[in-house]
Amino acid sequence: MKKYTYTEKKDTRSGFGAGLAELGRTNDKVVALCADLTPSLKMGEFIKENPERFFQIGIAEANMMGIAAGLTIGGYIPFTGTFANFSTGRVYDQIRQSIAYSDKNVKICASHAGLTLGEDGATHQILEDIGLMKMLPGMTVINPCDYNQTKAATIAIAEHEGPVYLRFGRPSIPIFTPEDQKFEIGKAVMINEGKDVTIVATGHLVWEAIQAGEELEKLGIDAEIINIHTIKPLDEEAILKSVAKTGCVVTCEEHNYLGGLGESVARTLAANTPTPQEFVATMDTFGESGTPAQLMDKYGLNSKAIVEKVQKVMARK
C-alpha cells in the first residue's frame, strides 16, 4: 500500500475559496454570486479583491441561479455559492431550465454537502444532490477529496465550457493530494494499485478509503483504490480496467446509494462486465444532528465500513 501522509488538515470549502480568489486575479470574466453565506463559502478574498465582480443576492437562491444564467449572456463565467441543499434541491427547476437546458456556462459551487455538515441536521444535509445534478443533460458533476484538489478543481472548471456542479464540504480533513497535481475533469486518479478488490471513492470518502487500504493490507488484502472526483462524465475506462484485474468493487460516497456514484459505477459494470459490487453510502435515509465523526460512524461512511464491505464483496467473487 502506497503511503499517504499529511501535515495539515483543512476544509475543502477553503480550497474553493482559494481557487476562486486565484481566478479573480487571473480571469477577469469570472464573477461570483452568493446567497448570504459568504463566510461559509470562504468567498471573502475574492470579494475583497474584486468587489465589482461580486453579486450579493440575499437569501434568494432561485433568483441567484437565474441571475447567474443571465450573466453568461455578455460573456461572464458565474460561480454561485451556497450550501449544497440550496444549490440543488431548492432550485432544481431554475437549474434545469435556465442553466442546463439553456446551455449556460454557470458553475454551481456547493458547500456543506452530505452528513459532515453536522449539527444543523437533516434539513441542511443533502444526500441526494449528486443524483439530482447528474441526471441533468450536459451537467458535469465534480466532488473533490481534499483542499488541494478542490482548489485545483475550482480553477479547472473556469476553463470548461458548460454547466458544472462542484460539491465540497465543511469539516477539516487531511490534505494528502499534491499541491501541484493537475486537475483533469473526467479523469480518475489512481491512489493505490492493487489486485484483490477495487475501491472507488469520491469526496471525503477518499481519505477513508486510504485508511481502509492500510487496514486491508494488514489482513493480506491488496486493494486498488481509485479517486473518482468527477462523477459525470465518469471515467468508465479506469473502472473497467481495474475490475478486469480485481473482479469486485466497493463504491464509497457521502451520498444516498440511490442516485450516487455507486449507481453510476453499477450501470457501467452492468453494461460492460457484470461485477459484484457493494455500496458504502447512506441507505435511502435522511441524516440527523451530531458531530461529523459521529454521523459518519453511525451511517457507516468510514474506513471500518469500507473494510467490512470489501470482505463481503470479495466473498461474492
Partner: peptide, 27 residues
Amino acid sequence: IRIASGSLGQGMSVAIGAAEAKKLNKD
C-alpha cells in the same frame, strides 16, 4: 432566443443577470 422559458417565473432573474453583465461591460 437567449434563454429557455416555459416553466414560469424565471425570466426576470435571467434578465437581471444580463443587465448586470451589460453594466460590467460598460454597454
